[in-house]
Design a protein around this nucleic acid. Structure first.
Lengths: 316, 316
DNA sequence: CTGAAAGCGCTAACAC
DNA sequence: GTGTTAGCGCTTTCAG
């Protein structure tokens, strides 16, 4: 394809003039502007963005780090960011890590490579210490709260959220409640859940905590394991409505009734939860994604809390 | 951040030598290679990918055009592509159009801009005539079948799929069957559905076709409309399990039983369909996304059919 | 208002 | 083996 030199030559002007009309500068005479524009149209010319990005040192593209690309929770955050991105004229690159530390660092390096202006981390594999150095090359914002001043956050107060749910369950008369989680103990969010649990119920019997739940099938397995326990739980708090759906499926295979035989509460107010009439805590993940995106492009390092809300339905 | 000149100067070599070690060329003496590498490490240097892309004329990034970013079907295709992309060392940029023609063209221009090596179009707003010119700037593959030789396809044979479902419904004794669709008549897929319907049932009463369905809520509305019809349908084929879920919800609010009072069949074998025990036709959208991605990076313009399968459950 | 020229950071002949 | 140099395609002083 043609380049700016060619356009300049054909239009009989200098490249600077072409550049000026390209960038809508003023101080270009009307006739030259028209002439250049005509050649641009005739030649069907489009400037090479790589060259522009190289000079400007910015790309108007933001990286979006997610662990898994088949999980409703991360999808929702992505949707939020995507909404904002087209609105603000940015482009989003999806970066799936599968919680692989090297991969994650590789993605962060794209800031250094000048491929990305900023990155939002929905969930991370590396310790903050490994991540923070990259914040000098571009804005990095997290969907998890952190004290580190270098990192902007659009976060959920998971501790309060879990506390409220466990309290609610307790008030409903449940004493043996189990819960599922995504990652295990290495995850801050799991630790917060456990802390909240202990705050309400005093102690946590290890069997009542079921990790590595990402989808419906995992939920089914969780149900199988949890409901076979000697002193089985009378309520389960699932880390997602699809997971709750899996638990429900297993419970139904045992002809259990919800909530009489087993209370279930899910998360994120998904269609499956609506259909099955699950109570759910909506962490407003779309808003989290939107806010995180806004923070990156504003180069803001604020800590923004996104409120959650508990939706009461018939499953408790 | 430092650039290649600086590294060269400090290491006491020329930029070409630095470039050679960067690109793992042979014919670099071991001592110089070591010296350069040391400076690179010391300076924490990373080459600027923009400059490299500018020279090479390729970016190893693929654009993924989707109409909506909150629809399970498109999400699944995206997931397939994302899987392949990390495997093949590519990066994916998500491009949501909301079926806006200008936006879509803007995205296609990214090929011309040299921002993208290729694009996969899951669903399009523009006619092929408007899209094809862009295929000279990069590979464009579609998830919808087209004869145009410039466009590779990873497609579903929707006509056969619909034919089979309608035939099945007919055999089950249904004579009044309705169906929902995403876009209206402008969509090829809707036209195929209608053709298949007429093939099996002879004629289509216009009220039996409900367009603009994308999510559960739309399904609920569809149920409301369809079940209020004078000669109401005894079976509904929904264009997605979440939509089927919405229909189910409305039917249940009327105390209807499935399948006695109303047969429902969905699409894509989603969790919600599994939980509600819906029959569903699985178009294997993840595979569609994977295959489409493979075609782009192989610069192949093949037409690849992805087989579907009908999953029989209790809702029919 | 316009053009010449100096880069942005890197690669790749082409010499030596 | 290694360095010199000419770009890749564009923006942006700096003169005029």
């Amino acid at each position: 394809m043609a380049n700016i030199n060619e356009i300049a030559k054909i239009a009989g002007v200098s490249v600077s003039t072409v550049s000026r009309v390209l960038n809508h500068h003023k101080y270009v005479s009307e006739d030259k502007r028209a002439a250049v524009q005509k050649v641009i149209n005739d030649m069907n010319y489009t400037p090479n963005r790589n060259a522009i990005d190289l000079i400007r040192g910015e790309t108007k593209t933001i990286g979006f780090i997610i662990p898994y690309n088949n999980n409703q929770a991360f999808d929702q955050m992505l949707h939020g960011a995507l909404n904002k991105s087209v609105e603000k004229g940015y482009t989003i690159t999806v970066l799936p890590t599968k919680y692989n530390k090297e991969k994650e660092i590789e993605y962060l390096s794209m800031l250094k490579n000048k491929l990305l202006d900023g990155i939002v981390i929905t969930s991370r594999a590396n310790p903050w210490e490994a991540i923070i150095p990259y914040s000098q090359y571009g804005e990095v914002v997290s969907c998890e709260y952190t004290e580190h001043p270098e990192i902007g956050c659009a976060y959920i107060d998971r501790y309060s959220s879990y506390l409220e749910v466990f309290q609610y369950l307790k008030e409903k008369g449940h004493t043996t409640v189990a819960f599922t989680a995504a990652r295990g103990m290495q995850s801050v969010s799991t630790q917060q859940t456990i802390a909240a649990y202990k705050e309400i119920f005093g102690e946590l019997r290890p069997e009542l905590y079921y990790p590595d739940c990402y989808n419906m099938e995992d939920g089914y397995l969780a149900g199988k394991k949890l409901l076979a326990l000697p002193a089985r739980p009378t309520a389960i708090y699932a880390n997602g409505d699809e997971i709750a759906g899996g638990i429900y499926q297993y419970a139904r295979s045992l002809h259990m009734n919800i909530p009489e035989d087993l209370a279930i509460i899910g998360q994120e107010n998904q269609p499956i939860g609506i259909a099955l009439d699950f109570s759910s805590v909506d962490h407003q993940l779309i808003k989290v994604g939107e806010q995180a995106f806004d923070l990156v492009i504003q180069k803001s390092r604020q800590k923004v809390n996104i409120p959650y809300r508990i939706i009461h339905r018939s499953s408790i």
